[in-house]
């Protein structure tokens, strides 16, 4: 690493501090505006909510009434947690099987999953929504299987890459000692896969939690997730209740920031590992 002199270090620190403020400013501005009367948000977005402008928590209360955000939060949480859990168990088992059982079929299957990884959602958006509608997967439980299906490409690919680096002798020893393949997988292989499990979990949580288009096409309006609830505020053309919008933006960001502060190390490592492999 190239160290710099004290003078230059000070300049660098000042520049980075200014940048940090610039990076945080949008969120702080939203926070400030969430306490402002909606009439003043458009006309004075950068001033502090003083005097007449200050409305306390009424934007939050109004926004929650309009969007049902706590309910949306529960649906988002439910769908994200169970989809991610299912993706981890399902795709790690699949990846282990198709990497270890060598054959034309499993080889082809691997390439089909890799192919699926690069297909953009727009390609299957319309037909997937129709299929989901026909087989009654258009609800918060059905959508979990859709996420498993559409998300399996990347996750199978990442798990396969890691399984290839595990020495097969460990698994053979377990099988000889009397473990069946299921026991071998859950007691021996899965613990070794832990770093990749964390990476896959982070990538899928970030994708599913923030996903707007897929749930908006699949779920009925009584099962809104957070991004759908925020978009719902736009309503008819051009008419946004800015007060409620600001408050909902703050509430939508809050859980992400809390999650980030607690799992920062894993999130950054996971995202980088995913980027390098993907």
């Amino acid at each position: 690493m190239l160290k710099v002199s004290k003078g230059k270090a000070t300049v660098l620190t000042v520049v980075m501090s200014v940048l940090t403020i610039l990076f945080l400013a949008p969120i702080i501005i939203i926070l400030i505006n969430s306490f402002k009367d909606k009439l003043y948000i458009n006309s004075a977005p950068f001033s502090l909510p003083t005097g007449d402008m200050f409305v306390g928590m009424s934007n939050y209360i109004g926004g929650i009434m309009k969007t049902g955000l706590p309910k949306a939060f529960c649906y988002s949480l439910f769908i994200t947690v169970f989809s991610t859990a299912l993706i981890i168990v399902g795709t790690s088992m699949t990846a282990w099987y198709i990497t270890r059982v060598k054959g034309k079929f499993t080889g082809a299957l691997y390439y089909v999953f890799v192919f699926a990884m690069i297909v953009p959602f727009q390609m299957v958006m319309f037909t997937m929504a129709k299929v989901a509608n026909i087989i009654r997967f258009d609800n918060p439980i059905g959508i979990i299987f859709l996420y498993l299906g559409f998300g399996s490409g990347l996750s199978v690919f990442m798990f396969s890459g890691f399984v290839k680096s595990i020495p097969i002798e460990i698994e053979e020893a377990a099988l000889i000692d009397g473990c069946n393949p299921l026991q071998t997988f859950f007691k021996v292989v899965l613990p070794i896969l832990k770093p990749t499990v964390i990476t896959v979990a982070i990538l899928n949580v970030m994708w599913i939690w923030n996903d707007y288009l897929l749930p908006s096409l699949i779920l009925p309006s009584e099962n809104m997730t957070i991004p759908i609830a925020v978009q719902y505020l736009r309503g008819g053309y051009g008419s946004i209740d800015m007060g409620a919008m600001m408050a909902m933006l703050v509430l939508a960001i809050l859980p992400i920031i809390i999650f980030y502060l607690f799992c920062q190390k894993y999130i950054i490592e996971g995202v980088v590992a995913g980027a390098v492999k993907g």
Binding site: G149, N180, F185
Partner: peptide, 23 residues
């Protein structure tokens, strides 16, 4: 063990990706 290890993911994959893609 193919149905246990690959079955569920493959089924979901066919429903959510393969069929919509070909259609």
């Amino acid at each position: 063990y193919f149905p246990i290890f690959v079955g569920p993911t493959l089924l979901a994959f066919i429903i959510a990706f393969a069929i919509p893609f070909i259609m």
